[in-house]
Nucleic acid binder design. Structure first.
Ligand SMILES: [Zn+2]
Ligand SMILES: [Zn+2]
Ligand SMILES: [Zn+2]
Ligand SMILES: [Zn+2]
Lengths: 148, 148
DNA sequence: CCTTAATTGAGAAACTTTCTCAATTATAAA
DNA sequence: TTTATAATTGAGAAAGTTTCTCAATTAAGG
């Protein structure tokens, strides 16, 4: 709630406009919730936090909004080996995530180690590679430091 | 159906035994279905194909079996940017997949380009990286060659 | 063979996601 | 400013997915 709207949310209005989409309070609120969080959030996490800003927000709107924001690259879906459908803010359209498996903290890193590797792999496999999905799991410095 | 059981399925019996799990016809049939397929398969794909071998197989058994096989590394879950929960055979426990987005064909490649990169990234982010998830999307040689 | 604990099938229950539609609202044109 | 319009929303119903329960079955070891 602290600083709303912030620069990122003003940018978002531009992106929405470019795509011919409306800048609704619901969309900005959901984006704000994800932007403010250092952890990945489930659908229900997002609904609850969005309702703190806009109490009447409906669940269907959350689903629709997350699809819209993910499609235009303002947020990312976060996948886990045994189930997915959580979401996180994405600071960069080519952002990969590191997830702390202890406290759920999430960090995105923009640079990508794949550019070279791709061509090589393309040749060997015969696949024309268009896209990739990378996610790292581990422990953040706080959690790795703690004995618990 | 062609060659059942094949070498891979005999190996699977060993792995199940090591873990104290029973080698049931259902588990071997599901593994066979995934092993035989060149494409990733949804839960319902797997149920249908398993029923061709064991007609009474129940849906709950498919869910339970996929969890077991994935936990012991004989198969992998395949994730997509906008939804997941499909499955594929995994020839290697550190196997990453390339998925053809036109025909759903899937190929796993065992070698991993990350070993070096990890340490570097660990230092910069402060995360202790334990695990990673990588998947590539593109077009297989057949699909890339065809105009359609 | 027996025994025993693990596994299964079936359907119920719980949970998640999508759909429908009337009411509302952001936007741009007048 | 108003006004017109198409996009978006909330609510609840519907559809779809996953998990649970439990009696019956069965794999595996003695
Ligand atoms: Zn942490
Ligand atoms: Zn990348
Ligand atoms: Zn293909
Ligand atoms: Zn790897």
């Amino acid at each position: 709630m602290a600083h709303f709207p912030c620069a990122k949310e003003i940018d978002a209005k531009e992106v929405l406009k470019e795509k011919g989409l409306k800048s609704t309070p619901q969309r900005l609120a959901v984006l704000h919730v994800l932007h403010e969080s250092t952890k990945y959030l489930s659908i229900n996490n997002i609904l609850d936090k969005t309702k703190e800003i806009l109490p009447n927000t409906g669940l269907a709107t959350i689903y629709r909004t997350l699809d819209v924001l993910a499609d235009i690259g303002l947020i990312s879906r976060v996948h886990f080996e045994d189930g997915c459908h959580t979401y996180a803010y994405s600071s960069d359209s080519h952002g990969h995530h590191i997830v702390c498996t202890k406290c759920n903290k999430i960090m995105d890193f923009a640079e990508c180690p794949f550019e070279d590797y791709m061509e090589n792999l393309s040749k060997r496999t015969g696949f024309k590679i268009n896209n990739h999905f990378l996610q790292l799991f581990g422990e953040c410095n706080e959690c790795a430091g703690n004995a618990n």
